[in-house]
Amino acid sequence: MDFDFQNIVTISVYGSAIALILIGIYAVLIKKHLIKIVIGMSLVDAGLHLLFVAIGYINNGTAPIFSPGYEDAATNMVDPVPQALVLTAIVIGFAVTAVALSLVIRLYKHHGTVRIDEIKSLKW
């Protein structure tokens, strides 16, 4: 692979997105503090959103909006579908985060701790 600009951009965008996902999973799997786990979850979210948008990007493309004066720009627009999906996903992600945080609060009220290894009621 020759290192022209295109490849650098490719690697940095995809790489940062994948790195965000992996960091998030790492936090979910290793960190003991429940809030850290929720942070990890939102990082995974962020990485996925970046990945989606990056897939839809086109070099030298424009945003999928027919601004006044540019009504015929359709040939040069980036893919709008991933953007619409991510738009939805961000809002849902907030809802999930909010519910997770409320569960954290609830667990803290119930168990007096936010450390996941001290909450053993999942034992079967």
Binding site: I25, V28, L29, I30, K32, I37, I116, D117, I119, K120, S121, L122, K123, W124
Partner: peptide, 17 residues
């Protein structure tokens, strides 16, 4: 075999991954 259910939710997540 049941010992894999440690009661720690994170362990279960590790199994999944």
């Amino acid at each position: 075999t049941r010992k894999i259910y440690t009661g720690n939710g994170q362990t279960y997540a590790i199994y999944v991954v």
